[in-house]
Amino acid sequence: MLTCHVSTTSPTPAEAAGREGTWFDLVGDDVGERARVERATGLHLPDREHLGGIELSNRVGIADDALRLGIPYFSADDDAAPSPVGIVLTPRHLVSLRYAPSPAFDLAAERVRASVPGTSTDAFVVLVQSIIGRTADGMEAVAAEGGSLSARIFGDGRRRTSLLRAMLAEIGRVEARLTRMRLSATGLLRIVLALREAPPAWIPKPALARLHAAQKDLDVLCEFDGQLTDKLQFLLDAVLGFINIDQNDVIKILTVASVVSIPPVILAGIWGMNFDHMPELHAPHAYPLALLAIALSIVLPLLWFKRRNWM
């Protein structure tokens, strides 16, 4: 799907070709739409395989007044699998290539259409700010979810193993979301850093100042991501610790049961022996006394374990 964005209007590719500050947003692998953008802009657009490369040469490059930027792993949505995103920026046009719908790109398109007429660099800065804003919102949601998980893990007195297993799976799901956001933020931070270190001459200073502010925002997001990662790791360790405590309780119960069963087995074994001379066998109350002795051999160890707080 191909969409053209300029301030206050959304023209066709043919109408937008001669306008400055036009943003061509190309979604998917449609060869025809790709060719239309290349004819309208005179650019050669990178393919998906090139955008997916993790080396820096595939992320940042400039030739013939065309700045080519790439994010190998960009999460279009919180639950979507990462896919590469490419950006080609020239003094007249901005071209974005992506392979999945993205709320951040939709937000940037709304801001570009609502703004006063600007340049392609202005549209690029708006896009960067929109991605940062969506990533920040996603991390705040992860922080809130982590707080809810913490309250459920430490606030509930009854921590059944089935509930702990469910929380373990939920922590893994939240960590996967955070990882996708981290990939997007770090990929964007690297291209912003590279762009600020060696900017093309045609990028104005106000745009560079806004990119500098965006870099600071990304640095803050990276620090926040580190805090969230530590928090989720702590919750993971806590859940595993509670599961380990439950397992130890089970082992302790089995140990107590095995120890308690030893005395009655010994007594029953002694009185079950076939000796000619066992005086208690001929006593009038020998059988109930034997049962009472076996019962006491069970109760007394249990009382001892309870007194020592072993149960």
Rank of each mutant, 00 (worst) to 15 (best):
A283H: 14
L267T: 03
A104E: 04
R158N: 13
G226K: 07
G42F: 09
A100Y: 07
G61I: 03
A169G: 11
R19F: 09
P284D: 12
L221I: 04
S130W: 03
A81N: 05
W23V: 01
A214W: 10
A185V: 00
T255C: 09
D77T: 09
K205C: 01
I298W: 11
S150I: 08
E15I: 06
S7V: 02
L168N: 09
R173F: 14
V85L: 15
E20Y: 08
I191W: 06
V259D: 05
P301R: 11
L69M: 06
A209Y: 14
V239F: 01
D237N: 14
G272A: 11
A176H: 12
I54F: 15
P206Y: 12
D25E: 05
D25F: 09
E280Y: 11
A17R: 00
I71Q: 06
V220S: 14
V192Y: 02
T41K: 04
I171E: 04
A136M: 07
N309I: 02
R196W: 03
A76C: 03
L291M: 15
S162A: 15
A286V: 00
V256P: 06
I270Y: 13
H282K: 13
T41Q: 07
R210D: 13
G187H: 03
I253E: 04
W271S: 08
A268Y: 05
A283N: 12
R210W: 06
L168F: 14
I71M: 10
V37C: 00
D79R: 11
V95G: 03
H277M: 11
Q227C: 05
N248V: 13
P204M: 04
A151W: 10
A108C: 01
A295P: 00
L232Y: 13
V116D: 11
S115W: 01
N244F: 08
A268H: 07
A100L: 09
G21K: 01
L94G: 03
V88W: 03
G86M: 04
L51W: 06
R111W: 08
Y73M: 08
V112H: 01
V116H: 12
G138C: 08
N274L: 04
L228D: 08
N274V: 00
G147P: 01
R190D: 12
S57M: 14
L168R: 09
E223T: 07
L107T: 00
I153S: 03
Q215H: 15
D30S: 10
I131E: 02
E38N: 10
V192S: 05
K216A: 14
S297P: 01
Y73K: 08
D225T: 12
S150R: 14
R113I: 00
L236T: 10
V260N: 10
E140A: 10
N248A: 08
A100H: 11
N274Q: 13
S96Y: 10
W304I: 13
A81W: 07
A286S: 15
F234H: 12
L45G: 03
F24V: 05
I131N: 01
L89P: 01
H44Q: 12
L67D: 04
L2A: 10
S184F: 06
A109C: 10
Y99A: 05
L127M: 14
L291F: 10
D225W: 12
T121R: 02
R68S: 11
A166N: 12
V31H: 07
D65S: 03
L94T: 04
P103I: 06
L193W: 08
M273N: 09
L240P: 00
